[in-house]
Simulated scan of single mutants.
Amino acid sequence: MLDAQPYFPGRAPIDAYGNGGFRFADMSHRGSLLIVPSGVYAWDVADFDALIANPRAPSLARFLDELKPPAFVLLGTGIEHRMPPKPMADLFMAAGIALEPMATGAAARTYNVLLAEGRTFGAALIAVD
Rank of each mutant, 00 (worst) to 15 (best):
V73L: 00
G18E: 04
A71Y: 12
L34A: 08
S59V: 12
R109Y: 10
G31V: 14
R82K: 14
G10D: 12
A42P: 08
G39Y: 07
L115R: 07
L99E: 02
T110M: 11
D26G: 01
L60W: 00
R56V: 11
A42E: 10
D26V: 04
I97W: 01
G96F: 08
N19R: 15
T120W: 10
S28R: 15
L125N: 00
G20K: 14
L34D: 01
L2Q: 08
A12L: 14
P9T: 15
P85M: 03
M27Q: 15
L2G: 04
V73G: 03
L67C: 05
D90H: 02
V36W: 03
T120G: 08
M93E: 05
L91S: 04
G76P: 05
M83R: 08
P9D: 10
S28M: 13
G20V: 13
A12W: 12
M27T: 15
M27A: 13
F48Y: 04
E117R: 14
F24S: 06
M1C: 12
D44P: 10
P6F: 12
K68A: 03
G118N: 05
A98H: 12
A108W: 00
Y7H: 11
A108K: 02
P85C: 01
Y7M: 11
R23T: 05
A124R: 01
D65T: 14
N54P: 03
A16E: 01
P87T: 05
P69R: 11
L64A: 09
L75H: 02
N112A: 07
P69S: 06
L114S: 09
T110S: 14
A12H: 13
T77A: 07
R23V: 04
P84V: 04
D49T: 14
A71L: 10
P55T: 00
G96A: 06
H81E: 09
P87D: 00
F72K: 14
A25Y: 06
P37S: 11
L67A: 06
D3R: 09
A106V: 07
